[in-house]
Simulated assay, not measured.
Amino acid sequence: MLSEKLKNHQLILASQSPRRQELLKSLDVDFKIKIKEVEEVYASNLKAEEITNYLAKLKAAAFENELNENEIVITSDTIVWHANKPLEKPKDKKEAIKMLQQLSNSSHKVITSVCLKSKRKEHVFFDVTKVYFKQLSLEEITYYVENYKPFDKAGGYGIQEWIGFIGVTKLEGSYYNVMGFPVHKLYEELLKF
């Protein structure tokens, strides 16, 4: 259905994330992957979705003056928002353990922004999912970090991995948003775009 609407367009996914690639594939659309190195720096006064909106647009800006008439580039950014500050990707094992200790026995928001950009227009949207974790023991956290090495994931965890199975007690919002793409919104926005 979406593929019919997009048959005269070439989708470009600007993401190395295997999860985003898998989720976009699940919409039954053809796309190619094109990566641009972008330094993900933002002003310290930005909060929550202001951060992800800004970074998604920044990633799309790297394709300025490069897109053909029929190309649409999709960029995205995800953060974990906890205790009024962002938790990004952990740099190492120690930082991943610290992040999961902070998330243990509390709730946090996972915010994903997506930017759709063509030669003529640009549209940014975001989604928020509230995730609740049980009290995680240091043993559980360490096991997860050592075995799953979640250093490419915001907040230091992947909901679709072991820690999600044993630790997440409740979700308010889209599960796929936590994985990195609010697929339901992406589908609607691509139809409109």
Rank of each mutant, 00 (worst) to 15 (best):
V41N: 15
E88I: 13
I51W: 07
S76K: 01
E139Y: 13
L6N: 02
K149I: 06
E188T: 14
Q10V: 12
E39V: 13
F63C: 12
F151P: 04
P182F: 08
I33R: 08
L186K: 03
A43L: 05
E66I: 01
S44Y: 01
Y144F: 09
L103E: 06
L171R: 10
S137N: 01
N8E: 15
I111A: 00
S104I: 11
Y54D: 04
K119R: 13
F125D: 00
L191K: 15
E140P: 09
D28H: 13
K59C: 08
S106N: 11
R19T: 03
H184Q: 14
V80W: 03
K109E: 15
Q135G: 00
E4T: 14
I166W: 00
L6T: 10
N8V: 00
L103W: 07
M99H: 09
L171G: 03
E64W: 02
L2V: 10
W162Q: 11
H82I: 10
E37V: 09
E37Q: 13
E161Q: 09
V128R: 11
K153R: 14
N70D: 13
Y144H: 06
F63V: 00
E139I: 12
D92L: 06
Q10M: 11
E188C: 04
E88Q: 15
K7S: 12
V110H: 05
L100S: 05
E188K: 13
D92C: 05
I74V: 06
Y176K: 13
V73M: 01
E4N: 14
Y42M: 06
V73I: 12
K89W: 02
S17K: 04
S76A: 15
L87N: 04
T78I: 09
D28W: 01
L46N: 04
K109N: 14
A96W: 04
F193Y: 13
K34M: 11
N177F: 03
G180T: 01
P90W: 08
Q160H: 12
Y42P: 13
Q21C: 07
E39C: 07
A96P: 01
S44Q: 14
L100H: 05
L11G: 06
F126W: 09
E39H: 14
K47D: 01
L186T: 13
I72A: 05
Y132P: 00
Y187Q: 10
L2T: 03
D127I: 03
H184V: 07
I141K: 03
M1K: 13
G158N: 08
L67E: 05
Y148D: 10
F63R: 05
D152L: 02
T75P: 12
P90C: 11
G167D: 04
Y148I: 02
Y157A: 05
D152F: 06
Q21M: 11
F151R: 01
Y148L: 02
P182D: 07
Q16L: 12
P86N: 06
E50L: 00
K134Q: 13
T169F: 02
F63A: 11
K153M: 10
E140T: 07
G155M: 01
I12W: 05
C115I: 03
I163V: 11
V131Y: 11
N105S: 14
